[in-house]
């Protein structure tokens, strides 16, 4: 069996008092689309930042392409990140340069290619996401879906081996969602990528994922093929997949006893 691209073992991460990950084990296999799903606030985005080395865990191991991310120097991290592309939820496009320059940005920063070649490369990436015609537009002129597609073109500009998608479908209309679903799957297969999709859109994600991890309250609740997961009868999985308001993930945020709280009068 091939070595996983990302291997996470016994990962613990807390923000202040709040525990985000409480001992997570997770493997991302190469050449597939792995989805990480879970309710909002479970730290899915945090997980991507940990994999990319933007955050350091309190304990545990994160190996990406065989390298221990937690032990890498800044230079080592930057070298590793050249193999990764990341699509931020906001797109994170640079707002003072146009679409073309945004996609050209990582190429210009990391290579010494002649302008003519950069132009061809950028147009190829923009063609792949269907936005070659928008190359002269500024980020502020793009719709949310277009911005995300430009960000996707930028994420694959340097032909990375792995692309991480942070909530790619959130806030998108059905057409944009459809386009993104198709793009993620097709780019993954055409470019031989390893894709990690963080999302809480069950249907869209299950449609393109080869493997799914379900996170909640700092733990991996379930994992497996999407079909198996959709048919799971675990209480956790059912609450998330069926969108029930109450269940193992409680409707109420933890609080002091309601009666006591009311009887305390004006004192906060």
């Amino acid at each position: 069996m091939t070595e996983p691209v990302v291997q996470i073992r016994d990962l613990h991460f807390a923000r202040g008092e709040r525990m985000i990950f409480d001992g997570i084990d997770l493997d991302i296999e190469p050449d597939g689309v792995t989805a990480i799903m879970g309710p909002s606030g479970t730290g899915k985005t945090t997980l991507l930042k940990l994999i990319g080395g933007q955050l350091r865990p309190q304990s545990g191991s994160i190996r990406v392409y065989g390298e221990e991310v937690t032990g890498l120097s800044r230079h080592g991290l930057f070298e590793l990140r050249k193999k990764m592309g990341m699509l931020f939820q906001s797109g994170a496009l640079l707002t003072d340069i146009n679409v073309f320059e945004n996609v050209a940005y990582p190429i210009r920063e990391h290579t010494r290619l002649p302008d003519a070649l950069i132009r061809d490369l950028v147009l190829m990436k923009l063609q792949a996401v269907g936005l070659r015609g928008a190359s002269a537009m500024m980020p502020s002129e793009l719709s949310g879906g277009m911005a995300r597609r430009v960000a996707l073109a930028r994420a694959i500009a340097l032909d990375p081996m792995m692309v991480m998608y942070d909530e790619p479908f959130t806030g998108q209309d059905p057409i944009s969602k459809g386009i993104l679903v198709k793009l993620i799957r097709e780019l993954n297969d055409a470019l031989g990528l390893t894709s990690i999709v963080v999302s809480h859109d069950v249907l869209e994600t299950a449609a393109i994922a080869d493997y799914v991890y379900l996170l909640s309250q700092g733990k991996v609740i379930e994992h497996g093929k999407p079909e198996a997961l959709l048919a799971s009868d675990s209480e956790w999985a059912r609450q998330f997949l069926d969108g029930k308001a109450d269940g193992p993930v409680a409707f109420h945020y933890p609080a002091a006893d309601f009666r006591d709280d009311l009887l305390r009068g004006g004192r906060a």
Partner: peptide
């Protein structure tokens, strides 16, 4: 705030330098 600095970091571009 708009994650542009994070985005640069993930593109292996040092935002302090750039």
């Amino acid at each position: 705030a708009t994650e542009q600095l994070s985005g640069m970091e993930m593109m292996a571009v040092d935002p302090v330098q750039r």
